[in-house]
Amino acid sequence: MKFEVKNELIAPAINILQKIKLKGLKSIHRSRLKDLLMTHLERVGKEEKELKEQYAKKDENGEPILNETEDGQKFYDIENREDLGKALDEFFNEKVVIDGGDSQVFLKSVKASLETSDVEWSGQESDYFVQVYDGFVEDKNENESDDV
């Protein structure tokens, strides 16, 4: 089994996992997946910033130009918004894949926990729940016998 989620859905996936009430080993398994997703979320944040810096106008020292809104929020002065938009769309549609021998047990446990969860999802959260649940994918070779 593996877990796949688009970069843009990592934060909602973490939120979905946090809302499920679990205890014992199931809680530990959920925490393992959540911790891995947090690591990927940090990487995605850094890479998004790098992309924006690459498309930003540069000052005389070659540094990206930052502008500020009236309420003090900073943003990059983007040279070509259309190209940045395309790059960000492609980037956010890339998938994070969590798989491997040591993750099999906790991935199966978290999927089972989602199946038995009594949380009532509504609105956009219900859409996120479906996308998270659908992210658990059986490996093609997982159910095949090793017999030749």
Rank of each mutant, 00 (worst) to 15 (best):
M1K: 12
M1Q: 09
M1L: 10
M1A: 08
V5F: 04
K6A: 03
E8P: 02
L9D: 08
I10P: 00
I10Y: 00
I10E: 02
A11Q: 07
A13Q: 04
L17M: 06
L17C: 07
Q18G: 06
Q18W: 09
Q18V: 07
Q18E: 13
I20R: 05
K21H: 01
K21I: 05
L22Q: 05
G24F: 04
L25Y: 10
K26I: 06
S27K: 15
I28D: 13
H29W: 04
R30L: 11
S31M: 09
S31V: 09
L33H: 11
L33D: 13
D35R: 14
D35C: 01
M38A: 03
T39F: 12
H40Y: 11
H40I: 01
L41K: 10
L41D: 05
R43D: 03
G45F: 02
K46L: 10
E47A: 00
K49T: 00
L51G: 01
Y55T: 04
A56F: 03
K57R: 15
D59M: 06
E60Y: 12
G62Q: 13
E63K: 15
E63Y: 12
L66C: 14
L66H: 06
T69I: 05
E70F: 10
D71H: 11
D71C: 04
F75K: 02
Y76K: 04
D77R: 06
N80Q: 14
N80F: 00
R81L: 05
D83Y: 06
D83N: 05
L84W: 00
K86W: 02
K86N: 11
D89G: 14
E90A: 01
E94A: 02
K95M: 05
V97P: 00
V97I: 03
G100H: 09
S103A: 13
S103T: 09
Q104I: 15
F106I: 05
F106W: 14
A112H: 06
S113L: 06
S113Q: 02
L114N: 09
D118W: 07
D118N: 10
V119T: 14
V119Y: 15
E120P: 02
W121Q: 13
G123V: 04
Q124S: 12
Q124R: 12
E125P: 09
S126N: 11
Y128K: 07
F129R: 15
F129A: 08
V130D: 14
Q131T: 09
Q131N: 15
V132T: 07
V132C: 07
Y133R: 12
D134S: 13
F136C: 08
F136I: 08
V137C: 08
E138F: 08
E138S: 09
D139W: 12
K140V: 10
K140P: 00
S145A: 10
S145D: 14
V148H: 12
